[in-house]
Simulated scan of single mutants.
Amino acid sequence: MADTAGPTLLYAIKQVELAVRAGMDKMLRPLNITVSQYTALTVLRQRDGLSSAQLARNSFVTAQTMGELVATLEKRGLVTRTSDPTNRRRMLTHLTSAALAMLDEYDAAIEELEEKMLADLSDRERDELRRYLGSCRTALTDRSAR
Rank of each mutant, 00 (worst) to 15 (best):
12 A>F: 04
13 I>C: 11
14 K>F: 12
15 Q>S: 09
17 E>Q: 14
17 E>V: 06
19 A>N: 13
22 A>N: 15
23 G>N: 13
24 M>Q: 13
26 K>N: 14
26 K>Q: 15
27 M>A: 10
27 M>Q: 10
30 P>I: 05
34 T>M: 02
36 S>D: 15
37 Q>C: 03
38 Y>P: 01
39 T>C: 11
39 T>M: 11
41 L>I: 04
41 L>P: 04
43 V>M: 05
45 R>S: 14
47 R>L: 12
47 R>C: 01
49 G>K: 07
50 L>G: 01
51 S>L: 02
51 S>E: 05
52 S>R: 08
52 S>G: 11
54 Q>C: 01
55 L>F: 01
57 R>H: 00
57 R>A: 08
58 N>W: 06
60 F>S: 01
60 F>D: 00
61 V>P: 01
62 T>N: 02
62 T>E: 08
66 M>G: 01
66 M>W: 00
67 G>K: 05
67 G>Y: 00
68 E>T: 06
68 E>W: 01
69 L>W: 01
69 L>P: 04
69 L>G: 01
69 L>C: 03
74 E>Q: 09
75 K>F: 00
77 G>M: 00
78 L>H: 03
78 L>K: 03
78 L>C: 03
78 L>W: 04
79 V>C: 02
81 R>Q: 14
83 S>N: 13
84 D>C: 11
86 T>G: 08
87 N>S: 13
89 R>C: 06
91 M>F: 13
91 M>K: 15
92 L>K: 15
93 T>P: 05
93 T>S: 12
93 T>W: 01
94 H>I: 05
95 L>S: 03
95 L>F: 13
96 T>Q: 12
96 T>E: 09
96 T>D: 08
101 A>Y: 07
101 A>K: 12
102 M>P: 01
103 L>E: 10
104 D>F: 07
104 D>R: 13
104 D>Q: 10
105 E>V: 03
106 Y>M: 06
111 E>V: 11
112 E>A: 15
112 E>V: 11
112 E>P: 04
113 L>E: 12
113 L>H: 11
115 E>T: 12
118 L>R: 05
118 L>S: 09
121 L>D: 06
122 S>W: 07
122 S>Q: 04
125 E>A: 13
125 E>F: 06
125 E>H: 09
126 R>V: 12
126 R>I: 12
